[in-house]
């Protein structure tokens, strides 16, 4: 439990460094460090599917971001801080902390997942856990939920990726582009 808190603090620290650094390459590397620590946290909490996804996507994003960031002549940048924006950000952060505290009071405690609370209760999650194997035949229940019980959501996710890649092609294409 203590090491989880240490890793979480490291993630927050890396995120702050990523925002505050004056160099684009430092920002990219800080994002990579935060993502790696996040995947370790996922692995320790018993979610290997999420951990693998986090590591692989993080590596891909790191390569793509370095590939694009390194092409600028000058990778340093200076940002000017407006006083109103800082004040608005602080007020928003305070509101978020207050609302999140009120919401966390109503949640089940950490380490007591809702699904394992009462195996005999007739909630939807217990239906998935008790009858997932006989209904889908998939031993990995994450895949059983993703591609059978909730496959409609996966179809939407695939559509989102498809549209974003079409957007990438449309923005950086060569054919049909007029130079001004």
């Amino acid at each position: 439990m203590a090491i989880l808190i240490v890793l979480s603090l490291f993630v927050i620290l890396a995120a702050i460094v990523a925002v505050e650094a004056k160099d684009l390459l430092s920002t990219v590397i800080s994002i990579g460090a935060a993502g790696l620590m996040l995947s370790v946290i996922f692995l320790m909490l018993g979610a290997p599917d999420l951990a693998i996804t986090q590591v692989v996507v993080e590596v891909l994003c790191l390569v793509l971001l370095i590939r694009t960031a390194i092409l600028r002549e000058d990778t340093t940048f200076e940002a000017r801080r407006d006083r109103f924006i800082v004040a608005a950000g602080l007020v928003g952060a305070g509101l978020l902390v207050a609302v999140a505290y009120a919401a966390l009071q109503a949640m089940v405690g950490f380490g007591n997942p809702l699904m394992a609370a009462d195996p005999e209760s007739l909630t939807l999650a217990n239906q998935y856990l008790n009858h997932g194997l006989e209904k889908t035949g998939a031993a990995n229940y994450v895949m059983a939920v993703l591609l059978d019980f909730r496959a409609y959501d996966t179809l939407g996710e695939a559509t989102v990726i498809f549209c974003s890649i079409i957007g990438v092609y449309a923005v950086i294409r060569k054919v049909g582009k007029t130079t001004t």
């Binding site: 599917d49 693998i52 692989v56 590596v59 998939a138 031993a139 895949m143 591609l147």
Partner: peptide
């Protein structure tokens, strides 16, 4: 469908 993994992760690793 048997072990942790899946289409998305495998596809991203192919691309890597």
């Amino acid at each position: 469908h048997l072990t942790p993994g899946g289409g998305f992760v495998g596809g991203v690793m192919l691309a890597c």
